[in-house]
Amino acid sequence: MGNTFLNLALLIIFQFSIRPTFSMKLTTILTDQSALLALKNHVYDPENVLETNWSSSTHVCNWFRVSCGSRHHRVTALNLSGLGLVGTLPPSLGNLSFLSLLSITNNSFHGRLPVQLSNLRRLKHLSFGNNSFSGEIPSWLGSLTELRSLFLNHNNLNGVIPFSLGNLSKLEIWTLSGNQLFGSIPSSIFNISSLQKMDLSNNMLSGSIPPVSRDLLSIELINFNINNLTGHLSKDMF
Rank of each mutant, 00 (worst) to 15 (best):
P46C: 08
R19V: 15
E51W: 13
S100E: 11
V115F: 15
L117S: 01
L93Y: 01
K25P: 01
L89I: 15
C61E: 06
P90Q: 10
S103G: 04
L120H: 08
N106R: 13
T52D: 05
I18H: 11
F16R: 07
T52Q: 03
T58F: 02
G87S: 02
I12Y: 14
L37M: 12
S92D: 11
H73F: 09
W63A: 00
R74P: 14
L80G: 06
I104T: 05
A38L: 05
L83A: 05
T21R: 11
N107S: 06
L26N: 12
F14H: 11
N53D: 05
S57A: 13
V86H: 14
P20G: 10
N79I: 02
V75S: 01
L11W: 13
S34P: 05
N106Y: 15
L93M: 10
V43I: 15
G111D: 12
G82M: 12
L39V: 05
I104G: 08
Q116W: 14
L80Q: 04
V66R: 07
P90R: 10
L96K: 01
L117W: 03
A38Q: 06
H73G: 00
S92M: 02
L36Y: 12
L113S: 09
L83T: 04
L39W: 06
I29C: 04
S103T: 02
L113R: 09
E47G: 01
N106V: 11
L89Y: 08
F14N: 09
S97E: 01
K40W: 04
S57Q: 07
N95R: 02
S34D: 06
R71G: 10
L26K: 15
L10F: 14
N119G: 08
I12E: 08
N62P: 09
N48V: 00
T27R: 14
S108C: 06
L113P: 11
F22Q: 11
V66Q: 03
L83W: 13
T88R: 03
L96S: 05
L50D: 03
F14T: 10
L50E: 02
N119Y: 08
I12L: 15
L120W: 10
I29S: 13
T21G: 00
S17N: 14
S34M: 06
I18D: 08
H72R: 13
N41E: 15
S55K: 00
L113Y: 09
L99N: 06
N62C: 05
I29T: 09
P91F: 12
I104L: 12
G87I: 05
T28V: 06
L96Y: 07
S23R: 15
L11T: 14
L30H: 15
T31L: 12
Y44P: 00
I13S: 13
L102G: 02
L99V: 03
S108A: 11
S103I: 01
L93K: 00
P20C: 09
P20F: 12
G84A: 04
I18V: 15
V86W: 08
H59M: 07
L11K: 13
S92N: 11
N106K: 09
F109W: 04
L37D: 03
S57K: 15
Y44Q: 13
G82H: 11
P90S: 04
G82T: 05
L10M: 12
Q33I: 00
L11A: 14
G87H: 08
H73N: 07
S23C: 13
L96D: 10
C68H: 09
S55C: 02
